[in-house]
Amino acid sequence: MTTQDMLDDRYGRRRSPSRRWLLAIGALVAVGAVGYVGWSIVQSTLDAVDADTTSFEVVDEHSVSLGFQITSPPGRDVACAIEAQDEEHGVVGWRVVEIPASELHAQALREVIPTTALATTGFVNSCWVVSP
């Protein structure tokens, strides 16, 4: 028997069961918070789309041909914002391309971007899964 136990027996001091309940509830809340954060990370990676520019060709002063590859979840529609810039990094052409659902995980695509002036580069700005 420890000294604390002897003192508790002598003077009638007892440990409160409510403190144990508070610790148990706090532990459950912490486990729930960790589970929520983990699931939201997994969910965001399930809908992730990766895009890489593979080539571009300045066709003339009014268009750029852009080659790119996307990696997306199979069976989901995807949209990509593609962009053309001039030598001073000003945007001279931009459009959103909608890519229909495919059973392939990776797709190679080629699109034409209309431009308002002579472009020097073309690239994929961003891609995302289109909500149903």
Results as ranks from 00 to 15, higher is better:
Met1His: 12
Thr2Ser: 15
Thr3Arg: 15
Thr3Met: 15
Thr3Tyr: 15
Leu7Pro: 05
Leu7Phe: 14
Tyr11Ser: 09
Arg15His: 13
Ser16His: 12
Pro17Ala: 12
Ser18Trp: 07
Arg19Leu: 13
Trp21Gln: 10
Leu23His: 08
Ile25Arg: 02
Ile25Val: 14
Ile25Lys: 02
Ile25Gln: 02
Gly26Arg: 05
Leu28Ile: 08
Gly32Val: 01
Gly32Pro: 01
Val34Arg: 04
Gly35Thr: 03
Tyr36Cys: 06
Tyr36Arg: 04
Gly38Ser: 12
Ile41Ser: 07
Ile41Asn: 10
Gln43Tyr: 11
Ser44Asp: 15
Ser44His: 03
Thr45Pro: 01
Thr45Met: 12
Thr45Tyr: 12
Leu46Lys: 15
Leu46Glu: 14
Leu46Pro: 10
Ala51Ile: 07
Thr53Met: 07
Thr54Arg: 06
Ser55Arg: 11
Phe56Ile: 09
Glu57Pro: 04
Val58Asn: 10
Val58Asp: 06
Val59Phe: 00
Asp60Gly: 08
Asp60Phe: 11
Glu61Phe: 07
Glu61Ser: 12
Val64Met: 04
Ser65Arg: 15
Ser65Phe: 02
Leu66Lys: 10
Phe68Gly: 06
Ile70His: 01
Thr71Leu: 04
Pro73Thr: 14
Pro74Gly: 05
Pro74Met: 06
Gly75Asn: 08
Gly75Leu: 11
Gly75Met: 08
Arg76Phe: 06
Ala79Trp: 01
Ala79Gln: 14
Cys80Asp: 07
Ala81Asn: 11
Ala81Ser: 10
Ile82Arg: 02
Ile82Val: 14
Glu83Lys: 10
Gln85Tyr: 01
Asp86Leu: 00
Glu88Ala: 10
His89Gly: 03
Val91Ile: 13
Val92Leu: 00
Gly93Arg: 05
Gly93Glu: 05
Gly93His: 07
Trp94Pro: 00
Val96Trp: 01
Val96Thr: 15
Glu98Pro: 04
Glu98Leu: 04
Ile99Ser: 03
Pro100Asn: 01
Pro100Glu: 08
Pro100Ile: 05
Leu104Asp: 15
Ala106Tyr: 00
Ala106Asn: 13
Gln107Cys: 05
Ala108Ile: 09
Leu109Ser: 04
Arg110Cys: 03
Glu111Tyr: 02
Glu111Gln: 05
Thr116Pro: 01
Ala117Trp: 06
Ala117Arg: 01
Leu118Ile: 00
Leu118Gln: 05
Leu118Asp: 05
Ala119Lys: 04
Thr121Ser: 13
Thr121His: 10
Phe123Lys: 13
Asn125Leu: 02
Cys127Ile: 03
Cys127Ser: 04
Cys127Thr: 03
Val129Gly: 02
